[in-house]
Design a protein around this nucleic acid. Structure first.
Length: 879
RNA sequence: GGGAGCAUAGCUCAGUUGGUUUAGAGCAUCUGCCUUACAAGCAGAGGGUCCGCGGUUCGAACCCGUGUGCUCCCACCA
């Protein structure tokens, strides 16, 4: 069969994904193996996968494939989130743009019909992308947070928490999104620094005929939000502020609407900020609200749901809040009540979804009491039952949030989501139940009253927090065999930005309903940024399309590129050049396979080189090197240091396998290697492919099959046990590498051609490996003569490799000055080093306390250093 | 205002208990090579006061102090 010059991913990827699916490899059912479970962080149903998802998904697939090949019953559950506010906003937008329909003119039922249509149409996009990336998820377990069982589970939890007294309804100050016209949770508000203005406004002091110690007619108050003055119910000064003592028992007049409001005194007011006097607007500021409660002041809400001024404002009714601000400032200026405007930097809260400035607002909403739920969730992490990776740095933030957690506003004034199971009668009584019939049963006496269900739906996260349980129907059907088998899940892989939204709340829900952590480990990936360090965003246009990247580089290269540049937990700067590196790596693998294949097709049963020894050594060395790396990789992966594990494998394949091993066993032109060497080489290559497979599944599977006819598939091939590696063979290998490199170096420095024959004179203490060294060196360095332990009369080029000293004889001119300088440097260092090691060894404390192997290591270091010093001194003397 | 983290080559980062690291990798740059698996390759080269300053040590990129610069999270100063 003719193999293409380079690896072409396109056809290969689809073929294998289909094959894996046909073989049911992704499917998992409870059995007697140990489960390894991951639940995907469900992406928004109508979204597309961005680079952040790509990173998360790749990490999860690596972990799940590795576990599957290690003998676990690996189960990765895919799914998507209905994302109530985000999706509803998109559907509303689509209806307006494509069909000219205003949501306000639709019934709830009709709207939901459109929303589900939209979900059907676009919901498949992310699943397709997950497939293209090669993710081995169990497609029979796809879960959507609005599935029937899921919907039921959410309602069930709501009722349960309500009955436990952990859910209540009440009027509180909440964050309001005037664009989506819904309440938000505190976490859905993002604060940004903005430059605003501080307006200084004159309030007239009401002349009540009483004499005062001050004859001022006005006081000046600084505010950022002049449009809220119509909601003013008091002004407030610090009781210790003598400037305003004369205002005791006075009233002031709110400008433009001429409302008389009292002057109150509270220590909350900072004397040194602004004018030291504060207007109190309880409806539109959390602090004012608290002061209002304290002084029993009325609340005048001057804003409508959409952010326009309400009738309570009396003026500029119906104007948008920001337009009204300008007009009011204008009005104040005309009346001479505006003292000045000042530039001022402040932090404003923005709705995460609509980017509208969030409005603090008094509103009747549903809340979850968090304190009791938080306690076990806190314990689960501080006790170490759940480990957060890559490091401890998130423990502190997690702890702080849970210790200071506030009640969670869970009602949203939307349609897309689980409708709150509460019914109201005409008198406003509330009946919480799973259905209207059940609600009716709660009514005392007559049950003929008209009941109306709460219009609102629940926060998306109120469904997401059940995810690790309900994907296994653990809430709707508790005690079923899936939930008992798969829960708690093994690892949660997610972005650190949703630690509060999701991670903490999942732990709460898990502790509440399963009395068990939902996952053993949490692995936080960093943010994916562009190479300039900016966040990926649509508006910047710096977020590449996943399918385009896969098309250009292949899925394996995309996975490679994103993993190789993804140090655990740090943000990663996405750069396509790393994908290119992945593509090149594909090709290297491809060509290594071609080389092996060529030898097989040669079929000549001739030994490599002059004897079997060098081939045998190459095999032994690589076998040991392979085991050494395997144990390194195990270690790195158990610490979730995937990027380093990949680097290690990359270097094993490229440097050790391709550059050294294959070169060592490579036969002379026209000859082939022995059958045994071939078979063993192939078996090592198989192991390499297996090791790499979790990271780059497609190409490894393809090569595995191209190399030989196989009955099995690499994807489900089980790892053998990691064998111990023999340090002597490894160090002999290193010695050889050093010698060969040193000879090449020397040739290069002296303008000899790589293939030019030279004579080598080697001094070495390692007598038992003479023959082997000779054979390999002869082959790899084109030495025509190799003599041990003999210094030639006219030493040509001298070089030191490890403990060996090499003289190379040729006709080339000799330049020893550079060599000398380097050797002298080495000598100085080694002498210093020797002194310190000796000191350590003569230190009683050290000898007594250190472990035997540590002392042995030090002794060996000492011996090494002494040996090297001897060699170098001799060399220098002969120069 | 409170807390956390970071600073190593042009760029992105390794450097895991201070000692073969007299500082490494990949990418980028430059110089040779189309050598019979691979030019998507091979062989080389240049490039670093390991942020500044002090301290501990025989020895510091690593430990301690301090200064500077950047990032993130949390918080109700109009």
């Amino acid at each position: 069969m003719e193999l293409s010059k380079n690896y072409i991913p396109a056809s290969v990827e689809e073929k294998w994904y289909q094959h894996w699916m046909d073989q049911n490899y992704f499917k998992s059912e409870p059995d007697d193996r140990t489960p390894f479970t991951i639940v995907i962080p469900p992406p928004n149903v109508t979204g597309v996968l961005h680079m952040g998802h790509t990173l998360n998904e790749t990490v999860q697939d690596i972990l799940i494939r590795k576990a599957r090949m290690t003998g676990y019953n690996a189960c990765w559950v895919p799914g998507s989130d209905h994302a109530s506010i985000a999706t509803e906003a998109k559907v509303v937008d689509m209806l307006k743009r494509e069909k000219g329909i205003d949501k306000n003119n639709l019934s709830r039922e009709d709207f939901l019909k459109y929303a589900f249509e939209w979900k059907e149409k676009y919901g498949g996009i992310i699943y397709n992308q997950i497939k293209r990336l090669g993710c081995s998820v169990d497609w029979e377990r796809v879960t959507f947070t609005m599935d029937d069982h899921y919907y039921k589970a959410v309602i069930k939890v709501f009722l349960d928490l309500y009955n436990k007294g952990l859910i209540y309804r009440g009027a509180r100050m909440i964050n309001w999104d005037p664009v989506a016209k819904t309440a938000l949770s505190d976490e859905e508000v993002e604060y940004k620094d903005v430059t605003g203005k501080l307006y200084y406004i004159k309030y007239e002091i009401l002349d009540d005929g009483q004499p005062t110690t001050d004859d001022r007619k006005f006081i000046t108050i600084a505010t950022q939000r002049p449009e809220t003055i119509m909601g003013d119910v008091a002004v407030c000064a610090n009781p210790n502020d003598e400037r305003y003592a004369f205002l005791k028992d006075k009233k002031v007049i709110v400008p433009l609407i001429n409302r008389e409001v009292p002057v109150i005194f509270d220590e909350y007011v900072d004397k040194d900020f602004g004018t030291g006097i504060l207007k109190i607007t309880p409806a539109h500021d959390i602090n004012d609200f608290n002061i209002g409660l304290k002084f029993n002041l009325p609340v005048i809400d001057t804003l409508n749901e959409d952010g326009t001024l309400s009738e309570a404002a009396q003026i500029f009714i119906g104007e948008d809040r920001f337009v009204a601000r300008k007009k009011i400032v204008e009005g104040l200026r005309e009346k001479g009540l505006l003292v000045k405007e000042e530039e001022y930097t402040t932090r404003l809260g923005y709705s995460q979804r609509t980017n509208a400035v969030a409005e603090p607002k008094i509103s009747t909403q549903w809340f979850v009491k968090m304190k009791d739920l938080a306690q076990p969730a806190l314990e689960a992490v501080t006790s170490g039952k759940i480990e957060i990776h890559p490091n401890e740095k998130f423990n502190a933030t997690y702890k702080y949030w849970l210790e200071n957690v506030k009640d969670w506003c869970i009602s949203r004034q939307l349609w897309w989501g689980q409708q709150i199971p509460a019914w109201y009668d005409e008198e406003g009584n509330v009946y919480v139940a799973e259905s209207e019939e059940q609600a009716r049963k709660q009514i005392d006496g007559h049950d003929d009253r008209e009941l109306k269900q709460d219009e609102d739906v629940l926060d998306t996260w109120f469904s997401s927090w059940l995810w690790p349980m309900e994907v296994f129907h653990g809430i709707s059907d508790p005690g079923n065999k899936d939930i008992e088998y798969y829960y708690p899940t093994s690892v949660l892989v997610t972005g650190q930005d949703i630690i509060f939204f999701w991670v903490a709340r999942m732990i709460m829900a898990g502790m509440e309903y399963k009395h068990e952590r939902p996952f053993n480990d949490v692995y936080f990936t960093g943010m994916v940024r562009d190479k300039l360090g900016r966040k990926m965003s649509k508006s910047l246009g710096n977020s590449p399309d996943l399918l385009t990247l896969i098309h250009e580089y292949g899925a394996d290269a995309v996975r490679f590129g994103i993993m190789i540049s993804s140090p655990a937990g740090n943000d990663l700067l996405f750069d396509e050049s790393s994908l290119e590196q992945g593509k090149f790596f594909n090709n290297k693998l491809w060509n290594a396979m071609k080389l092996l294949k060529m030898w097989e097709e040669g079929k000549v049963q001739e030994a490599t080189g002059k004897g079997h020894q060098s081939g045998e050594f190459a095999l032994q060395w690589f076998e040991n090197r392979l085991q050494e790396v395997r144990s390194e990789v195990e270690n790195l992966m158990s610490q979730f240091r995937l990027s380093e594990a990949l680097k290690t494998i990359y270097s094993l394949i490229w440097d050790d396998f391709c550059s050294w091993f294959l070169e060592w066993i490579k036969p002379e032109y026209g000859k082939s290697i022995s059958h045994e060497v071939y078979e063993r080489s192939v078996s090592y290559f198989d192991e390499l492919l297996q090791l790499l497979h979790p990271f780059m599944p497609f190409i490894t599977e393809e090569i595995y099959h191209l190399l030989k006819d196989r009955k099995d598939d690499l994807m489900v091939k089980q790892f053998g046990p990691v064998k111990e590696s023999n340090p002597e063979i490894l160090s002999l290998g290193n010695k050889l590498k050093n010698l060969i490199t040193a000879v090449r170096d020397a040739k290069n420095k002296n303008n000899l051609k790589p293939k030019e024959a030279v004579s080598l004179f080697i001094e070495t203490s390692d007598e038992k490996s003479f023959d082997l060294i000779k054979e390999i060196l002869a082959k790899q360095t084109h030495a025509d003569e190799i003599i041990f332990n003999k210094v030639p009369d006219t030493a040509a080029i001298t070089t030191v490799a490890g403990n060996e000293k090499i003289y190379i004889k040729s006709d080339a001119t000799i330049d020893t000055s550079v060599q000398k300088e380097k050797l002298e440097k080495d000598l100085n260092y080694l002498k210093g080093f020797l002194i310190t090691v000796e000191k350590k060894l003569s230190n009683d404390k050290f000898v007594q306390n250190a472990r035997a192997e540590v002392i042995e290591l030090e002794r060996k270091k000492k011996a090494d250093a002494e040996q090297k010093i001897k060699v170098i001194e001799q060399t220098l003397a002969s120069l």
